[in-house]
């Protein structure tokens, strides 16, 4: 019987697990009173579910419906004029949700804020492209890689994968080597499905050794010419004759003499 492999998360797992190992957490600090971050939290107001400082950056957890509102407040009233990064993390296997984050930068104060929200599977998120044009490409990439639809985006199309690709690669259900559609994509596109047999499947094993391949490998003792048929005839291994020792002579006679 085939071993049961859960398909909802095909990321590589650690082979050895220590059940007594307690995983530490990256320390989360409280926001200091009167600091810039405290002002930011106060200005944004009631939409924040949770806020803390992690590795020098403020992290705000919000609801996905409020993302446009919160980011607008951050841009116009708190001076966060650049959206450095935005993407998603796939938690579908655990909570059936995506965790989206936006990384914002304030150039005058040299501070960064991360806005995090949890989006349930199947819902769409509001685009922040009217606020930050950098979201144009970044949201397209998020859609391409995860399948998260974005409302009111001017041009939501696949960006990194080809336009006719099926599947969203960065989901945890998508295997690293690609599914069947991916593995035959270039053959189907260029030559057509008939050539699948002629070209053959991809070789995904970096350590593959084929004993019948006489063009890349040669077996010591059974050498054949390049590209010829693989045979089982033994070839004589000829060593060179040096001045002192003749390696071609069998060693057993010397040993017999010594005995």
């Amino acid at each position: 019987m085939r071993k049961y492999v859960p398909k909802d998360n095909v990321q590589k797992k650690a082979y050895y697990t220590d059940r007594f190992h307690v995983v530490p957490r990256v320390p989360r600090e409280k926001i200091e009173e009167g600091s810039h971050f405290a002002n930011v939290v106060k200005t944004v107001g009631a939409d924040i579910k949770e806020s803390y400082v992690e590795i020098g950056q403020l992290v705000l957890h919000i609801n996905p419906e409020d993302n446009f509102k919160v980011i607008k407040i951050l841009k116009e009233q708190c001076g966060y004029t650049q959206c450095s990064e935005q993407s998603a993390v796939d938690y579908l296997a655990k909570d059936n949700e995506f965790e989206l984050f936006w990384q914002l930068l304030n150039v005058t104060e040299a501070k960064r804020v991360r806005v995090v929200c949890r989006l349930a599977n199947g819902l769409a998120i509001e685009s922040i492209e009217p606020l930050f044009n950098s979201a144009n490409f970044a949201e397209r990439e998020m859609f391409d890689m995860f399948g998260i639809k974005v409302n009111n985006h001017p041009f939501l199309k696949r960006i990194l994968m080809p336009d006719d690709w099926e599947g969203h690669p960065l989901l945890k259900t998508y295997p690293l080597f690609g599914d069947e559609f991916a593995s035959w994509y270039e053959v189907d596109k260029i030559f057509g499905k008939e050539y699948r047999d002629i070209i053959g499947p991809e070789n995904r094993d970096p350590a593959k050794i084929d004993i019948k391949d006489t063009k890349r490998f040669s077996r010591v003792g059974y050498e054949v010419p390049f590209g010829a048929e693989y045979t089982e005839e033994e070839q004589e291994i000829e060593y060179s004759e040096t001045a002192l020792v003749n390696y071609n002579k069998k060693a057993s006679k010397t040993l017999d003499e010594r005995r």
Binding site: L176, F177, D179, V187, I199, E202, N203
Partner: peptide, 12 residues
């Protein structure tokens, strides 16, 4: 060794 790379140009 991923989904998006042709495993060797000699495939095509």
């Amino acid at each position: 060794n991923t989904y998006a790379t042709v495993q060797g140009v000699d495939r095509i």
